[in-house]
Computed example of a mutant assay.
Amino acid sequence: MSAAVKYTLGRLGLFAVCFTALLPVPLNLLVKMMVAFVASAGLSFLLLRKWRDNTAEQLGDIVARRTAEKDRLRSALAGDESAAEAGDRVAAAEAGDRVPATKVRKTTGKRA
């Protein structure tokens, strides 16, 4: 399970627990939801620190990869042959990692 999904489910779980704890309190439903939202935000700051840090690290890695790829593409478009070759190697490696698609039967587009 990815770190972002785990953190999101943790936040939703904390909200559900806080809201359930406020059910017996004689308040308007919307007020209960707002109080539960604020309480779950505070508790998630304290309790879900590790998951939040893992999510931030995962997102930072994705941003760094995309930035490096964007810089490489800009260099390749500017005429840098080594950047273009590096992109070819990356594309070949990614194509090797993918599962081959199943054969798709061609249709003529005519209805029977």
Rank of each mutant, 00 (worst) to 15 (best):
P24D: 13
A83E: 01
V63Y: 04
S44W: 04
L43S: 04
R52E: 13
R66Q: 11
F19M: 03
S2H: 08
T102R: 05
M34Q: 14
E57F: 11
A36D: 04
L48V: 08
R52H: 15
T107H: 08
G13V: 06
S44I: 02
T102F: 06
L9N: 12
L59H: 08
T67Q: 09
E69I: 09
A84Q: 05
D88W: 06
V35M: 12
K103G: 07
M34F: 13
T108L: 00
R72M: 13
D61Y: 11
T102I: 02
L23P: 00
G109V: 03
G10T: 08
R65P: 00
F45W: 11
L29I: 10
V17Y: 05
A39P: 01
M1R: 09
A112T: 02
A64W: 04
A101D: 08
A86L: 11
D88N: 09
A76D: 08
N54G: 06
T55W: 07
A21T: 13
L43I: 12
L77I: 01
V35Q: 01
R89A: 14
E69Y: 05
L9E: 15
A95V: 03
K106H: 02
A39N: 01
L59F: 10
L30D: 15
R66Y: 04
S44D: 04
E57T: 13
P24I: 15
L77F: 01
Q58W: 05
T67M: 05
G13M: 09
T102E: 13
M34V: 14
L23I: 11
V90L: 14
T102V: 06
V99I: 11
A3D: 12
G96A: 15
A101K: 13
S2E: 12
V31D: 15
D80N: 14
T20G: 11
F45I: 08
A93D: 15
R111C: 02
D53V: 10
F37C: 03
K32T: 09
T108P: 00
M34G: 14
G13P: 03
L43M: 14
L73E: 07
